[in-house]
């Protein structure tokens, strides 16, 4: 075993990358749940985004176009969920689960001819002199634009929910759809918009895996990140910054266990591989002991009766 083989700078830079798909998926789902909808289809929307992004990037040669296509792909799939739950008033849990199964199958179908291809690479942003700062430079200023977009998105969602009227209305709808309806807010429109946003975010997160983190296409490559994102939202007590923290924790341990595997630590690989999931959940359960309440209407179907 040789722990000195682990380069701390590369390690930290690596876990920022490992956390990014989770950040996108979690922040999208957070907005959806704040509006009172429980969409369990995150995994399906992520994998759909992953293949839509991958295919588009390969065909056009532009990774950024690929990310745009991933967002659209995730959003289109979430539209199906919105139709089922908001128009057909189907059960949200069942619809979400079927969305995941559907997304996994659909992505495998689209991805058949893309296995083993290398996608075009998205370059890192040139920060010029900033990247030359010792320690800080290599960790924070050697990434692609999507990673920074993820962090900006967390800040944006936090600010919108806390300071803007749109955010207040979104929270109000999630808190009591009956009261919001009585005041004249369009509950279904607001929820559908939130679901679309969540789908686009999940799609971006999926594409980040297939285009940057791995980068290649394999069936089922999101490997449960969508489920972790769902758990993260709950254990983060629906708070954006805490979700970001949880994502970094998960990314950090993922990266660490990969490094440990590389260094040949005498722990069976299976235990190392499951460690990020277990530790993230344990830490978040402990953190969520403050019982910040869930949106009161979460998962309840809204029907405007007369």
């Amino acid at each position: 075993m040789d722990l000195s083989a682990i380069n701390p700078l590369l390690f930290v830079a690596g876990f920022l990358v490992a956390a990014t798909p989770l950040i996108f998926a979690a922040i999208g789902e957070l907005v959806v749940e704040k509006s009172g909808v429980l969409n369990l289809g995150v995994e399906g929307m992520m994998i759909t985004g992953a293949i839509c992004g991958f295919a588009t990037a390969v065909e056009t040669g532009s990774p950024l176009l690929g990310f745009a296509a991933a967002a659209v792909g995730g959003a289109v799939l979430s539209l199906l969920f919105a139709f089922l739950t908001q128009v057909a008033l189907a059960n949200q849990v069942a619809s979400g689960l079927s969305l995941t199964l559907f997304g996994l199958g659909l992505s495998a179908l689209i991805g058949q001819s893309y296995v083993g291809i290398k996608p075009p690479r998205l370059g890192d942003i040139d920060f010029g002199l900033l990247a030359d700062i010792p320690v800080i430079g290599p960790i924070f200023f050697t990434h692609d634009i999507i990673l920074y977009l993820g962090i900006a998105l967390v800040a944006g969602v936090w600010a919108v929910l806390k300071f803007t009227r749109a955010g207040l209305i979104l929270r109000a709808v999630g808190e009591s759809h009956d009261a919001a309806h009585a005041l004249g807010y369009k509950v279904k429109h607001i929820r559908t918009t939130a679901i679309l946003f969540g789908g686009a975010c999940a799609g971006l997160g999926g594409a980040y895996i297939s285009l940057i983190r791995v980068p290649q296409w394999t069936e089922g490559m999101t490997a449960g990140i969508g489920w972790i994102a769902l758990a993260l939202v709950v254990f983060a007590s629906w708070k954006p910054w805490r979700a970001l923290l949880g994502a970094y924790l998960f990314g950090g341990i993922t990266q660490l266990q990969l490094n440990l595997q590389g260094a040949g630590v005498a722990i069976p690989v299976e235990y190392l591989a499951m460690s990020p999931y277990i530790i993230t959940i344990i830490v978040l359960v402990v953190l969520s002991a403050d019982k910040s309440a869930a949106p009161a209407s979460l998962g309840r179907t809204f029907h405007a009766s007369n």
Partner: peptide, 12 residues
Amino acid sequence: HFSLFDALSVAE
């Protein structure tokens, strides 16, 4: 039946 949101503040 009051059309209020329990988790929000009075001002909100």
